[in-house]
Amino acid sequence: MLNQYNLKMPKNVFAGPEAMQNLKTIIKDGVAKITIFTGKDILKLGLLNELISIIENNHIEYEILSDIPSEPSYTQAQEVVDKFKALNSDFIIGVGGGSVMDIAKLASVLSTGDYTVKDLLDNPLLAKKQVTSLMIPTTAGTGSEATPNSIVGVPEKNLKVGIVNGELIADHVILDSSMIKNLPKSIAAATGIDALAHAIECFTSKKANPISDTFALEALDLILNNIIEACSNPDALEAKRNMLLGSFYGGVAITCSGTTAVHALSYPLGGKYHIAHGVSNAILLTPVMKFNEPVIKDLLAKAYDRVAKEPNKELTVDEKSKYIIDLLENIVTTLEIPTSLKAFNVPEEDLEGLVEAGMQVQRLLVNNMREVTPEDARKIYLEIM
């Protein structure tokens, strides 16, 4: 656990029923033109209707950028940023999942053209906030609305890479459960597991600290006890609100701790095979936690004490640890998320390429409580093939 630590968060976070109405306050003074970053599916579902109505009632000019690819490469991200720069907007709203919000966050530090997305891959410290930003997640979720991270693909390395700088953190966040009410089960499940991975990884990270533990444990409690109901029942608004809050807390935990080998080894799966980020994490979650268990049993036992609604006080540390890992495995199975790369036709002859790419993600592997060697990574990948 770190002895010195700090916390960075969005300036304003609005949550609860009808949270979208807070947009009136956010944009009432000094905003001349807004660019909304979103996806075509979000437009089709009408999820922007209330937001646009508020903007129009405030007589503010706006543009919509909806051609945002899922799991974008850095060149695709740059193309969207270039379109944004031509609009001369002074306020950004990102409405969507992780890819949308990550590109919107990049745009907030790239409006001047002094540097590019590629430059930030080489040196993230170049980033300086230039345009005020508001993030509104439509999944629960990536936690991107809370983090200083923007993830882009680097095709030449078959990897996804995180650009990390506190300047990327959103200025405002709105967490409104109406935005995730009708999310398809498959997307809700995959993104929910991503949020779950954030919480359990940050809690078991070498960089964990009292601040990150506070948010990670609360995220674990909210997610583990609500994810199945939230994904399976469209009318379970309380469970969805809890998931949205848990996802945000998981994102906050990332800012002051960090994810570990689950995310590190999942990045090549997204980078080369374009497997959805949440699905990649779901496939790796249990295998990595079982690998880590010998050195994180006490932490998993603490997690059990926090999340179990009817805790068995007779359980040993080993039994509590096993309970948590079994629970993670059961959630992935119940939500019908693939647990093998066979579903994506990943050939076994690609194993060494996966190991090489996964071992490059030292930014996250160094956070793992148990050292991951190339042989360890090989065994984990073999387990999911």
Rank of each mutant, 00 (worst) to 15 (best):
M20R: 11
Q21M: 13
L23D: 04
I26Q: 09
I27F: 09
I27Q: 05
I27Y: 07
K28N: 08
K28F: 08
D29Y: 09
D29G: 00
D29N: 11
G30Q: 01
V31E: 03
V31A: 05
A32L: 14
A32F: 09
A32E: 14
A32I: 10
K33T: 13
K33R: 15
K33V: 13
K33Y: 03
I34V: 06
I36V: 12
I36M: 00
I36P: 04
F37L: 11
F37E: 03
G39F: 02
G39T: 14
K40W: 01
K40I: 14
I42Q: 00
I42R: 03
I42W: 01
L43I: 15
L45P: 06
L45R: 13
L47G: 11
L47P: 02
L47E: 00
L48T: 13
L48V: 12
N49M: 03
E50G: 12
E50K: 15
E50W: 02
L51S: 10
S53W: 08
S53G: 15
S53Y: 05
S53Q: 06
E56P: 07
E56M: 06
N57D: 11
N57A: 11
N57I: 05
N58F: 04
I60P: 09
I60N: 08
I60T: 12
I60S: 05
E61V: 10
E61D: 12
Y62E: 03
Y62W: 08
E63D: 12
I64W: 03
I64L: 08
I64C: 04
L65H: 06
S66T: 01
S66K: 10
